[in-house]
């Protein structure tokens, strides 16, 4: 699913942490010990590090950087649906993370192994149950939850296995999608969600508000939430939830077990 997200690198240092949610009464606090959403100095810039693989090209995807900046240096991370290992390599090389990955594609697993990344071939729906409690500081699920059969069980597993979970997903409440369904009466296809309804792997779409509701249902504490518009720009923090839900094309949540 990593192909679904091609956010243009725009600003290296967006600042859009939400202090407080409206409406739902959800409180989104700062992460412990963190002074800002995006930490670190020049090391978080967009330039490649020597250890990055050639196919990554000369730029790090903004969404990877956003997620990487939520991870404390030196921590233990499980990346579920890690693709070709771009995020794991970034975390290892820039944040000294002890990272592991699960990936469903055999070819991607081989690519990861060749990068020295410990990645196993597996399926988020079936294999997370076998991981012990508290095995990781962070479990990352990037652009994958909408393709799982049981998103709730997956999310609960993430928060069982890791102290924190970082989940990013496409927002089905985005205005373009509402337009397609509401006015055109068609299932939406966008640049980020290019599949037709009959061939999409995405079987459990949700909106940002839906996801917030699920987090509340399973007792997950939202430490941070970021919404990005269609251009990959963060939606202004001062905006209320309904604006996020309308103009955020992607969302990234940092969750913590209560």
């Amino acid at each position: 699913m990593s192909e679904a997200v091609r956010l243009r690198p725009s600003r290296a240092r967006p600042s859009f942490e939400r202090e407080r949610a409206d409406g739902d009464g959800e409180s989104i606090g700062r992460p412990q010990g963190a002074s800002s959403t995006l930490r670190g100095g020049g090391g978080n810039g967009l330039g490649p590090t020597p250890a990055e693989s050639p196919e990554r090209g000369g730029e790090s995807r903004l969404d990877l950087l956003l997620v990487a900046d939520m991870v404390e240096p030196g921590s233990r991370v499980l990346d579920v649906g890690c693709g070709d290992g771009a995020l794991l390599a970034l975390l290892r090389d820039r944040r000294q993370v002890d990272g592991r990955g699960i990936e469903i594609s055999r070819e991607n697993v081989s690519r990861c192994l060749a990068k020295g990344l410990p990645v196993i071939q597996g399926d988020a729906d079936t294999d997370l149950a076998d991981y012990p409690n508290d095995a990781f500081d962070y479990v990352i699920l990037s652009q994958t939850i909408q393709a799982t059969r049981q998103p709730r069980a997956v999310l609960e597993n993430l928060l069982r296995i890791g102290q924190r979970a970082i989940v990013s997903f496409p927002n089905f409440g985005h205005w373009r999608i509402r337009y397609d369904i509401g006015l055109r009466g068609r299932m939406p296809t966008t640049e980020n969600l290019p599949h037709s309804w009959y061939e999409t792997p995405n079987i459990h779409f949700c909106t940002i508000r839906d996801f917030v509701g699920l987090c509340r249902d399973i007792g997950a504490k939202m430490e941070k939430a970021i919404a990005l518009n269609a251009g990959g720009q963060p939606v202004r923090v001062t905006m209320p939830w309904w604006v996020w839900n309308l103009f955020g094309e992607q969302a990234v949540f940092l969750l913590r077990r209560r």
Partner: peptide
Amino acid sequence: SRATMHALNAAGASVGFVEIE
């Protein structure tokens, strides 16, 4: 192999796994 892998994961080992078609 998966059973071995799960044990290695539980032990916090660095483990890769691939099933060849």
